[in-house]
Write a protein that binds this DNA or RNA. Structure first.
Lengths: 187, 187
DNA sequence: TACAAAATAAAGACTGACCTGTATTTAATT
DNA sequence: AATTAAATACAGGTCAGTCTTTATTTTGTA
């Protein structure tokens, strides 16, 4: 395995463990045992567990934004692309490793004083809101920029609620009801 | 301090620490140091940290439901009582110890296999949804029971999103936008 | 009310396990 | 020949929970 491949392998293993078990419930020893690499190798690629956590947040959100964008863009015009987000979320929910939103989970786990991680999470969520806003302006050219920002925030809140609450309750109804609420924006 | 008072004192101290610092970031030693009691005393009242966590969840949710009910019931008729929930949340957000929703935080921290804690959290959230539903049926007597259940779930999702996202972003706009969305139900 | 008996609290040592991160030695790869 | 990885021991700390000893408080009974 090449140098860059090892780094990616560590990141993917750590991400799976952080996501499904939680950041504090995942130790470095478990990451190296699961990925089959040595402890010194991990620290050669990531200088601390916190740096690995930052890489985890970037990795998960980048993949999420890439995949949900691909999923939605082949949908029909107008609101269909936005509503497709909730269909994508339903697929996520049905995947066997679904554990809610990694950002909300991590916010709950790390101290308020950790500005690096909190800043990264807010940055990633703002990227998600921007994605929603761009999808809106692409599909509704008459929509003013300020209106798109406000509407994107509302859709974001509905999506986040569906994401977190489907996990908390172990049920799909939050996704369904959030989608219904979102659909009222496109009548 | 009497027996029952000590137990309550331990519970309140542990609840404050669990809520503001997180469950896994709060040790038993910190709870006893902050509350000024002995370790054996804590274990005399709560047989384990997990039992203390269950008591924490019941305590926080009971106080929350009691206080938000008192806050909302003096509001005007109809949707005003429901919208008052978001005003109550804004007050919570502005309190210096605001740390989001204790239930969502705890779900992120404890393993999926911990059925006792997960069941308690779902139970408490269902009590909250029932509170919303009862507020609806009290104020809209023409509302059918099935419709009230669905509407209560939608309002619940908006409230939860506002709760979690105002914490994540450190901003009030999620509460404001969720309230606006909720107000569309009462036009 | 007074006092003895029982229960409970305080203080802190202790166990065994786990944590992050470092250092060392050996093996493999480039 | 030089770099990198594996394996593992180790350091220094924290964790939940148990136990012992001493002090205090509560309670039952006279």
């Amino acid at each position: 395995m090449k140098h860059a491949e090892i780094k990616q392998h560590i990141l993917e293993t750590a991400s799976d463990l952080f996501y499904t078990k939680g950041y504090n419930n995942t130790g470095i020893n478990e990451i190296i045992a699961t990925s089959g690499i040595a402890k010194a190798t991990l620290y050669n690629h990531f200088e601390s567990k916190e740096v690995l956590c930052l890489a985890y947040l970037v990795y998960k959100n980048s993949a999420f934004l890439r995949d949900i964008a691909n999923f939605c863009k082949v949908r029909g015009d107008g609101g269909a692309q936005i509503l497709g987000m909730f269909d994508y979320l339903k697929n996520m929910y049905r995947a066997k490793d679904f554990s809610g939103c990694w950002c909300l989970n991590t916010v709950s786990e790390i101290p308020t004083e950790n500005v690096a991680i909190n800043a990264e999470i807010r940055k990633q969520k703002k990227l998600f809101i921007t994605f929603i806003k761009n999808t809106l302006t692409d599909n509704f050219e008459l929509l003013a920029a300020a209106d798109a920002t406000v509407l994107a925030r509302k859709i974001y809140l509905l999506f986040e609620a569906a994401w977190a609450e489907s996990h908390l309750h172990g049920a799909e109804w939050p996704i369904k009801e959030a989608r219904v609420m979102c659909s009222t924006f496109f009548v």
